[in-house]
């Protein structure tokens, strides 16, 4: 069997994903990167977007928010404020959340509120993008 990576995706509310996979594709702060086993140790920031985990012939898609990634030769640990599997995404809800967030952003907000709203907007858009992509 080919070498594997242990991918762990943890959010403040749950451990969303924890399994051995063969390859991980994620969006770092400097762009997309693919990680194979024996990758050099690396730490970087995660941009909101998607994570694709390849396990056997199957591709697992997840939408994630911003966070941090730590990569060692054997494991990839992802800390993020939101992570959801493609199958679990509720498109209608995400769209609603996006509209609500956009509307809120046009109002006058304090710095704290803006940060929160922007985060939820990022969450919603990354969910929607992933949903559209996986459908094709």
């Amino acid at each position: 069997m080919a070498a594997t990576l242990k991918l762990e995706i943890v959010t403040p509310t749950a451990t969303v994903f924890s399994d051995d996979v063969e390859m991980v594709t994620l969006t770092g702060i400097d762009g997309e990167m693919g990680i194979y086993p024996q990758h050099m140790p690396l730490m970087t920031q995660l941009a909101a977007g998607e994570i694709i985990a390849k396990k056997g012939s199957e591709n697992i898609y997840l939408a994630v928010g911003e966070g941090f990634v730590q990569i060692t030769g054997q494991a990839v640990s992802v800390l993020t404020d939101m992570a959801i599997k493609a199958d679990d995404i509720d498109e209608v809800k995400a769209d609603e959340a996006r509209q609500k967030a956009e509307q809120r952003l046009s109002e006058k907000l304090s710095e704290e509120e803006t940060a929160t709203v922007q985060a939820s907007l990022l969450h919603a858009t990354s969910q929607l993008k992933l949903k559209q992509r996986t459908r094709r």
Binding site: I29, T44, Q45, Q70
Partner: peptide, 23 residues
């Protein structure tokens, strides 16, 4: 945990740690 490993940082350690610590 194996702490002997030296990590690379992307883009650089200041940026990553600068975000990680407050978070």
């Amino acid at each position: 945990h194996d702490t002997a490993e030296i990590f690379e940082f992307e883009p650089d350690e200041e940026t990553v740690l600068g975000q990680l610590l407050p978070h």
